[in-house]
Each structure stands twice: as structure tokens, then as C-alpha cells.
Amino acid sequence: MAGSHSDPLAHPEVRMGGAMRYIAGFISTVALMGAALIVTLRHDMGYETYVEVVGGLAALALLSQAVLFYGLDISRAQIWKSVSLILTVPLFIITVGLTVWMFQSLDQRTMVMPNSAAAATQPTLLQ
């Protein structure tokens, strides 16, 4: 088995990443979450816009983690990780997205939602 006799510390998987990248990853994620927190606390957007904005911030945070933490790219050492991730991301979206769509429609057709104050002020993704 190759690699067995070479220096493990020379492996590209060890060589990748770097202090600056990781610190940048930390700062960018915390900053994006901080921005989302501020938006949340100010409560001055419509529900839909709000979900879009924090969703966008989350997507950016995940992207920065993919690049800065996991070090994904299309180099020979990383290509299979990147490909497999790209193939799997649609499954995340399908699983949650279609499920929400399905139950949203089902609830509308089969359930009488309680008309309480909480229900009125608490829109969720299912409503």
C-alpha cells in the first residue's frame, strides 16, 4: 500500500488549510450569525423577507465554512469530496422542501388551525 512508507505529514490532506483560513472562517461565520441576530432582534421586516434574509446569511455562512474550514475545491485531493457534496445538497433541499410543501398543503386541506393569538403572530414555515 503506497503512502504507507511516505511521510504521513506530507499528505495533501495534512498540508491543506492554514491559520489565516481558519481564523477567517471563524470571523466570517460569527459576523454573519451576528448580522442575522441583529435582523432578528429588530423585528422590522415582513416574515417572508425576514426568512429570505436570514436564510441568505445562513447560506453564506455555510459556503464560507465549505471553503475556509473544509477546504473544498476542485484539486485532485479534494475533488471527490466536492463532487459528493454537490450531489448530496439537492437531497437536503428535496427532503426538507418537499416535506414542508406536502404538509403545508395537507394541513390546509385537513386541519382547522386554532385561531389563537399565538397562531396569528407566530407564522412558521408550514403556514
Binding site: 439537492p90 437531497l91 428535496i94 418537499l98 406536502m102 404538509f103 398543503s105 395537507l106 386541506r109
Partner: peptide, 18 residues
């Protein structure tokens, strides 16, 4: 195969679109 699972419970009644 990942986007067809509801055909096992069409009769749930999720609606014509779905």
C-alpha cells in the same frame, strides 16, 4: 428515486398539485 416517495401515500390527500 429521491423525488417520488409520496406515491406510496397518494391517498393521504395532500392535494392535486402535490
Amino acid at each position: 428515486s429521491w423525488v417520488v416517495w409520496l406515491h406510496h401515500f397518494f391517498t393521504m390527500g395532500a392535494g392535486p398539485d402535490i
